[in-house]
Deep mutational scan, measured.
Amino acid sequence: ASVAVIAAGTQGNIFATSALRSMRFLQILRMVRMDRRGGTWKLLGSVVYAHSKELITAWYIGFLVLIFASFLVYLAEKDANSDFSSYADSLWWGTITLTTIGYGDKTPHTWLGRVLAAGFALLGISFFALPAGILGSGFALKVQEQHRQKHFEKRRMPAANLIQAAWRLYSTDMSRAYLTATWYYYDSILPSFRELALLFEHVQRARNGGLRPLEVRRAPVPDGAPSRYPPVATCHRPGSTSFCPGESSRMGIKDRIRMGSSQRRTGPSKQHLAPPTMPTSPSSEQVGEATSPTKVQKSWSFNDRTRFRASLRLKPRTSAEDAPSEEVAEEKSYQCELTVDDIMPAVKTVIRSIRILKFLVAKRKFKETLRPYDVKDVIEQYSAGHLDMLGRIKSLQTRVDQIVGRGPGDRKAREKGDKGPSDAEVVDEISMMGRVVKVEKQVQSIEHKLDLLLGFYSRCLRSGTSASLGAVQVPLFDPDITSDYHSPVDHEDISVSAQTLSISRSVSTNMD
C-alpha cells in the first residue's frame, strides 16, 4: 500500500485504499475450498504439459491467421470504412471474430473485405477451437489413466503375492535341489530340531500304542527276528556328554522351557516337584528354603522380579524323601529317536503342500481383483469380450473355409453374387472337401465294379455249361463312374476274359 501511495501521489490514498479493500473479495475463495484444490491444478498442469506441443502448434497457427486476416482486412477497409482507421481496430475485429465472440461493433463494408473476412474466419476458427478439443481429450485420457492406475494399485499386491507364491512353489520342487534360497528361508522360521524330535516322538508313541520308545526297546525280541524299528541315535539331556547330531552343545531358554513342560507332561506320578524357592531380598537368592510367592517384596526391581519368575519355571527341586529312583531318572531322560535326515523329507513334503495351498489362494485372490467394480468397468469388459468373440468367430470361419475348400476369392465371389465353382473344380482343390469328394467317387466306382462281377458270377453259375458261358453278354464299365481312378482293366474288353475262362473250363471238362 505504501508503494502504491508513493507512486500515485497524494491523490492515490483513496485509490490504494479501495484497491486493498477490493482484495477482500479473495476471501470468498476460501468458501469454495480453492486453497485446498491442489490436486485439480496439478491435474491441469499435467494435461497442459503432456499436450504442450499440440497446444503450441495450434496457438501458433491461429496467431498467424489472426495477424494476416487483420492486416488484409485493414488494407481493404481503411479507405471505405471509418471503423478500420488503424491496424489496432482491425486487430480487435480479428480477435473478436476468430474467437467466435462477434460483438458486431465493427464489420467490413466492401465486398473484398467481406470475402477476406469469411475466408479467414473459416480457416482461423478451426485453429482457435483446437486447444479446447486438445485439453478436453487430454483430461479424458488423464482421468482414464488415473482410473486404471487405481485399479492397478488394487491389483499390484495380489499380483506380487501370486508371483511370489508361484516362485516358491517352483523352487520347493524336490527335483530342483539346486534352488536353496527358499529352503534357507524356511530353515530360519521353522522350530528347532528338538521340537521336531518331540513332535515325531509323540507320533511314534501313538503308533506304538502308547508305549515310549524306551519301553519298546525293553520289550523282549526273539533271536533272529528283525527289529520293528531301525537303530537310531540316542540323545540324552544337555547335561550328559552325548547330543543329537546337528545340535549345539548350548541350550537356549526356549529349549529349557519346552524341556520343563515336556517333563511335566510325562505324568505327576513319576515326577514330584517341590515348592519353588524364593529369594528373600533382591540381592541374594536362598535356594535351600522354600517360601511362598506372596511374600515377594514390593520394592524389588523389574529385573529381580523377572529373575524370580524364571526361577519359578526353570529351577524345580525335589524333596529328599520323594527323590526318584535311578530307573525313573533313566525313563525321564530325553530320548531322541530320530535324526535330521529322517525328519527333513517329511518336513519338505509338508512345506510343499503348504506352498501349493498358498499358490491356489493367491491365484483366487488375484482373480477376484479382475472383477469389474462399476458400470464403466462392466461396459469396458463387455466390449473387450465382444471384440475377442468376433476375433474367435473370424478365426473359426477361416478354418471352416479351409476345411470346406472355400477360399478368400470364392468368398468374395459369393458376396458379389457370382456363380460358384463347379464340382470338377471342387474335386481338384487341395482341401478337405476335395479329398472327401475324391474318396467318395472312388468308393462308388469300386462298388459298381463289384456289383458287375457278382452279377457275372451268378449268371455263370446258373448257366452251368461252357457254351452258355461264352454266350453271356458282359456289360462294359461306364468310364464316368470311375472318377479319376483309372484301372488298367477298364480299357480292355471283358469278353476276352470271358473267352479265356470258357476255354479253360472246356479243357478241364475234356480232361475229366
Rank of each mutant, 00 (worst) to 15 (best):
V347M: 11
S299N: 15
P479L: 04
Q335R: 06
L273Q: 14
G239V: 10
L387Q: 11
D493V: 05
V439E: 04
S227C: 07
R317C: 09
R250G: 05
P226R: 07
A233V: 14
D451Y: 04
S242F: 10
T172P: 10
I257L: 08
Y184C: 12
D484Y: 12
K365N: 08
V216M: 01
R414W: 05
R168G: 01
D428Y: 14
Q204E: 11
S395I: 05
L461Q: 09
A219E: 13
K394N: 00
S301T: 02
F302S: 14
D418V: 07
T182I: 02
A471V: 06
T266A: 09
G464C: 07
E330K: 12
I403T: 13
W183C: 07
L312R: 10
S311F: 13
Y184H: 01
E327D: 06
V427E: 11
N208S: 07
E327V: 03
A166G: 09
L450M: 00
Q263H: 13
H486D: 05
R355G: 13
W300R: 15
P231T: 13
P245T: 14
K254T: 13
M389I: 02
G420A: 08
S468R: 04
S468G: 00
E215D: 12
L501H: 05
H272P: 04
G409W: 07
G246E: 11
D187V: 11
Y373H: 08
T280I: 15
R194K: 11
L454F: 07
A323P: 07
E201G: 07
R355M: 07
S281A: 14
V350F: 15
K367R: 07
L169Q: 05
I446L: 08
P324A: 05
E447Q: 10
L501F: 07
S445T: 12
R406L: 03
D410V: 05
G260D: 06
C460W: 08
R371G: 14
Y229S: 10
E247A: 13
R459L: 10
M278R: 13
S508I: 04
L169M: 13
P488A: 06
I481T: 04
A166T: 13
T482I: 05
D173G: 00
D484G: 05
T277A: 05
E492D: 04
Y170F: 10
R309Q: 11
S319T: 06
P372L: 02
A323G: 05
Q444P: 14
L370Q: 02
A413D: 04
F456I: 06
R237Q: 10
P282L: 13
L450Q: 10
K298R: 09
